[in-house]
Design a protein around this nucleic acid. Sequence first.
DNA 1: CCTTACCGTTAGTGGTCACTTACCAAGCTG
DNA 2: CAGCTTGGTAAGTGACCACTAACGGTAAGG
Lengths: 106, 106
Amino acid sequence: MVTYQADAWTALADPTRRTIFGRVAERPRPVGELARELPVSRPAVSQHLKVLKKAGLVIDQPAGNRRVYRVDPDGLAALRAQLDRFWTAALANYKAIVEQSTEEDS
Amino acid sequence: MVTYQADAWTALADPTRRTIFGRVAERPRPVGELARELPVSRPAVSQHLKVLKKAGLVIDQPAGNRRVYRVDPDGLAALRAQLDRFWTAALANYKAIVEQSTEEDS
DNA sequence: CCTTACCGTTAGTGGTCACTTACCAAGCTG
DNA sequence: CAGCTTGGTAAGTGACCACTAACGGTAAGG
């Protein structure tokens, strides 16, 4: 058994998985279509999708014989929020430095 | 020698490195201060900072005896832009679905 | 100058992960 | 039902990576 982590950052760390996620973001796709566009085997794609699903980044939905994967907006939003925290923190820090140097000038 | 990758996603995949990046985002810090707050050795922190630097996420600046690390706004902005591409792609896709179902209703 | 503090680098190791091959289950079509 | 398509899972392997211990190199302080 392959037991992967369930972290969104870890999930998007792998280039292949990032490509898969990009494809799914453009348009919901079944597994086979993704595998045909990628230089890896179909089982590899299945495993990648399993990781992305566990990380809350994609949702799978059975459609007859096939299984269509689409982006989970909530997971993507959560990741965006986390990145924004870094952004605002860094920004606030730079702002403080600018204000300090302005005071020094006066 | 330890040859790591230089990708921002890969850099932030590691939890320890993400914590370090968060600390640096709050306020620029020297290596020793980061190491004292973390459950890893100082060399480990140095290696993590090396990865973050290679990924363009932090900048180092010698300050006398110490070496202060701060966030590189450009690298963080680039990552944000990449995540926004996923976001807008997924959003456009959902919008298309909503519009289609609206047409079906009429 | 000698000591102390701060930091980067190297070498070595254990653990995790991406990948393939092989196999099995379920839906569609004749 | 038989055959084809689609896809998830198991097992095994090679590679990468996070970590520590040990060392060297540079600035501050007595």
